[in-house]
Computed example of a mutant assay.
Amino acid sequence: MPTTKTRLNPDKLLNSKWTAAAPRNKEKHFLVVALNRHAPDGPVQTVTLEAVYTRRQSELPWRALTDAAQWLQGWK
């Protein structure tokens, strides 16, 4: 399993697709449904991911998506 970092532009993450490297509860594929900022024009702090199968949402720091050991860009 690769452990390299993926380069991302946080402002372009909305509606992007992600695959969990270690799926749990049948949740493997995710969509970024929201970019969360502390100020309206501020930098992206966190993203809201929604599981495609269960529609469960979770929030995490956007930089967590750069960890290839946990997240793969696109649906694999």
Rank of each mutant, 00 (worst) to 15 (best):
S16F: 01
L8K: 10
T54C: 14
D67R: 10
L13P: 04
A68F: 00
V32K: 01
W71R: 04
S16A: 03
L65E: 07
S58L: 14
Y53T: 11
Q57V: 03
L72P: 00
H29F: 14
T4W: 13
A22V: 11
E27N: 14
E27F: 03
Q70I: 09
A21V: 15
P40D: 11
N9G: 03
D11T: 15
P23Y: 06
Q70N: 12
E50V: 13
R55W: 06
T48E: 04
W71H: 06
Q45F: 04
V33M: 05
T48I: 10
L65H: 05
V32W: 00
L49R: 03
V47S: 02
P61G: 06
P2N: 12
V52K: 10
W62T: 07
Y53Q: 13
L14I: 02
W18D: 05
L65W: 04
H38N: 14
G74R: 08
S16W: 00
L49E: 10
L14D: 03
R7Q: 15
V47Y: 13
K12V: 07
P43M: 02
Y53A: 15
V47M: 02
R7S: 13
A34N: 09
K12T: 13
P61A: 07
T66I: 12
F30Y: 15
D67L: 13
T4P: 00
W71K: 02
A64F: 02
E27G: 01
D41R: 12
L49T: 09
V32E: 00
V52R: 11
A21H: 07
Y53I: 05
W62I: 10
E50S: 14
N9T: 07
A68N: 08
L13Q: 08
D41A: 15
F30S: 02
N36G: 02
A22N: 14
R63A: 04
A21W: 06
Q70W: 05
P10F: 06
T66P: 00
F30E: 01
T66K: 03
A22E: 08
V52Q: 09
W75Y: 09
P2L: 08
N36Y: 00
S58G: 08
R37S: 04
S16E: 15
A69L: 10
T66E: 13
E27K: 12
G74E: 05
K5E: 06
A51R: 08
F30H: 10
P2Q: 11
R63N: 11
G42C: 08
V33I: 13
L8I: 15
L60D: 02
P61R: 05
N15D: 12
R7W: 08
R56S: 09
F30V: 01
P2A: 02
T4G: 04
H29K: 14
V33A: 14
A34H: 09
V44Q: 10
K12I: 01
M1D: 03
R7D: 11
H38I: 07
Q45L: 11
L60H: 06
L8R: 09
P61H: 06
M1F: 12
N15R: 15
W18K: 07
R55V: 04
A68H: 06
K26W: 03
T19C: 05
A20Y: 03
K17F: 12
T48N: 02
W71E: 01
L65N: 11
T66F: 06
K28M: 04
A20T: 05
W18E: 06
F30Q: 01
V47T: 01
W18L: 03
